[in-house]
Write a protein that binds this DNA or RNA. Structure first.
Lengths: 114, 114
DNA sequence: ATCAACAGTTCCGAACTTCCGAACTATGGA
DNA sequence: TCCATAGTTCGGAAGTTCGGAACTGTTGAT
């Protein structure tokens, strides 16, 4: 499997980010990846909270996040490592990812106002 | 036509906001309303930029924005006044609406970083 | 080499959502 | 009353999403 498609940071569109994160399940996956906790493999993500996500759905969610420019995925042996593109994104759209995660109440590690 | 449904600010869900604003056309309508320029009637919004929006679509966009909690609509005579709920929203989800409008490059009046 | 096991992807049909023209409703003025 | 104006609802065509079953690609064992 050749390197998966990732948009260049300047090609990332705000509507794609909002669309990707407008699904709470997908936003939770992104929060998990951004938090760095699980190591970011699909298997780790699949049963992160009470809900078990079918793997075809998870694969699709990850594809949507990747194509929106939110995460970067690379194969490492048999599994896939997913990591967030937060710092690049924050340069392009300052405060956006953070405001969204914080609206969901899932800020990765920073302080939270409310 | 009795008062239209508007969610209480504490019932506003982040996914609804992101979904509403993940359509660039709808986000542009919201920016226009938030900017306050047009007076916010549908007719004024319909032909705001090069694109003419069919009125059934516009009505639907406004409904989505209203039910997401982004705008407040009230009939005034024969027309409808739409205004944004930015200040309430900013208390509930600090920085969210601003980060989104700024990502689209449509910040209502404040300064812009990049 | 062959095989099995595992991690993730693709395919495709059912269910859901979106778009927009035509028909409708509500308000105000003559 | 009847008309014009501003917006809403209806309905069907087109598009999107979800998830089970079948597939691919990688590793490790025999």
């Amino acid at each position: 499997m050749r390197p998966l498609f990732h948009p260049a940071i300047e090609d990332v569109r705000p509507e794609a980010i909002l669309h990707a994160l407008s699904d709470p399940e997908r936003a939770a996956i992104f929060a998990q990846i951004a938090g760095g906790g699980s190591g970011g493999t699909c298997a780790a993500l699949a049963n992160m909270r009470e809900r078990v996500i079918p793997k075809s759905s998870l694969s699709n969610h990850i594809k949507v996040l990747r194509e929106a420019g939110l995460i970067r995925c690379e194969r490492q042996g048999v599994e896939m490592r997913n990591h967030s593109r937060c710092s690049e994104l924050d340069e392009r759209f300052p405060g956006l990812a953070m405001a969204i995660l914080s609206a969901y109440g899932w800020l990765p590690r920073e302080a939270k106002a409310d």
